[in-house]
Amino acid sequence: MVVRRLAAVVAFGCAAVAGMAPASAEPVAACAAARVTTALPAATPMLDWSENVGYDRRGNLWVSRLYRNEVQRYDNTGKLTATVPVAFPGAVRLGPDGLLYVVYGDAPSSAIIPGGVVRFDPDAVHPHPEVFAAGFTMPNGAAFDDAGNLYVAATGSGVIRIGRDGAVDRGWTDRAVGAGANGIAVRGDTAYLTTNANPLGRVLSFPIEAPESRTVLADLSTGSGVPDFADDLHVDAEGVVYVTTLSGSLVRIDTRSGGACSVLSTEPLTAVVPVLGRSDELLASTERGSVLRIRL
């Protein structure tokens, strides 16, 4: 997306002007390579840009089609079974109530017409989205915690915590403000966040109850050492974080050792989720629009 590339260039330029460099100037090394196949092909490359992916409780896959302004439902055979209109959709996440929550307004226009989160019944014949929360600038990532709170990472608004009633927790959110927030994942009492402000490609973690206490896990760069744009991410049960990047890398970060390496080098990746029932397989969405199946 032009906007994503422009944001990356601007963020890198700001970091250079400020005299800041990534925590490690070394490019991310390669580690054990993954095997990649196409789970869903792109019908029309780029127009089908897949910004995010997620499952509903019946195991259907939902794909956010950014430029089509809709989220699409696919069954386990890869057949398209439903489309739901959502303006510039971002993260799509299953809520504790069985409803599907989708970020909307993942575009610069949200500075004028704010974005937010819609929700709908994914089992409905014709799902009807309703606004759950609104007022955010370029919301992109989203994740639920064990208590059912929803966390939204918005490039222009920082990290926002939303209660099960749709109300923004202003006190928590004010403490969690962070420029360039992009993707977010939650595991237990810890949140993991990607940011692309100063510097580009930073991956952070912080305790949910102390969002101002952030730890830098990695500053990502390409194979040539140029700072990379960090998009969405997933953290598994072992505390291993997988981050998608603009350069097409899937970066693996071991939060215990602090080591980072690239398991995959391919086309620009936008988000990643685990395959249902598999601990060794992931699905990744792409700018071209295909959804990739990755065997670790």
Rank of each mutant, 00 (worst) to 15 (best):
D123Y: 05
D75H: 03
A29T: 12
G148L: 14
P139T: 06
R93I: 10
P139Q: 09
G59H: 01
G54V: 10
V53N: 02
T37M: 06
Y74L: 02
V103I: 14
H128G: 09
A124R: 03
R93C: 07
T155I: 13
G59L: 01
A43D: 08
A34Q: 13
L100N: 05
L66V: 08
G90R: 05
A133L: 08
V53A: 08
P127A: 02
G141P: 05
K79P: 01
L66R: 01
R73Q: 00
A82S: 00
Q72G: 03
G135I: 00
Y67M: 05
K79W: 00
A42Y: 05
A91G: 15
V92W: 08
L47P: 03
A107N: 11
G115Y: 04
R119V: 00
A107R: 10
A33K: 13
K79E: 01
D146R: 15
H128Q: 15
W62K: 00
E130S: 15
T44D: 15
L99F: 14
F132E: 06
V84W: 02
G95P: 04
P96Y: 11
D121Y: 06
V152E: 02
L47Y: 08
R58T: 01
E130R: 15
T83S: 13
A33I: 04
K79A: 06
V36I: 14
D56T: 00
